[in-house]
């Protein structure tokens, strides 16, 4: 069926299969940052924003994005670069396969809660699995990023 959505700021019309999953649609539309790590909605690698909220694109029918706004990391390159550099400075990106989903969800967290405690960070990102880093380096990167933002008198990430 025909759908129309706003993908990373651009209007996209497409004829999609009823059972097409958003992750596959997004990859077919060049959003290769969106990764599949499981089939059971457990890993968080495929996290994208649907009308600004982080969701698992592996679990969402593409048709349900009709009329909505979808963001992937491709549409948030400025934020990804700014925040991602703090992860990279820790060496915590490691293999990088889980990074886009984690960074998307971290951006979502910063928008909901610009000044999170460590516990809040761990809870918000609990659905983003990573097998390389042991998570500590990611936490250090997030803390360093928040400290940097604070020192500049800015809130974490607010633009959309």
């Amino acid at each position: 069926m025909m759908i129309k959505l706003n993908l990373n700021g651009k209007s996209v019309s497409a004829d999609v299969a009823e059972d097409s999953l958003l992750i596959d649609f997004l990859r077919e539309h060049g959003c290769y940052s969106v990764k599949r790590g499981c089939e059971t909605s457990n890993c968080g690698l495929c996290t994208v924003f649907l009308d600004g909220k982080p969701v698992l694109s592996c679990s969402l029918l593409t048709v349900r994005a009709d009329g909505k706004t979808v963001h992937t990391l491709e549409g948030l390159q400025k934020e990804a670069e700014e925040f991602g550099a703090f992860i990279a400075r820790q060496g915590a990106e490691q293999c990088g396969f889980c990074n886009p989903g984690m960074i998307m969800n971290a951006i979502a967290m910063f928008r909901e809660n610009p000044d999170p405690t460590d516990e809040e960070i761990l809870e918000y990102l609990a659905g983003n699995l990573c097998r390389c880093s042991g998570y500590e380096g990611q936490l250090r990167g997030i803390r360093a990023f928040l400290d940097y933002k604070k020192s500049k008198g800015e809130t974490a990430i607010c633009n959309m």
Partner: peptide
């Protein structure tokens, strides 16, 4: 403690896999 050469490509989700 230098940054990995591919780090920024990875954190910004470039198509490298």
């Amino acid at each position: 403690p230098v940054m990995k050469k591919d780090a920024m490509a990875l954190v910004t989700g470039q198509p490298v896999f």
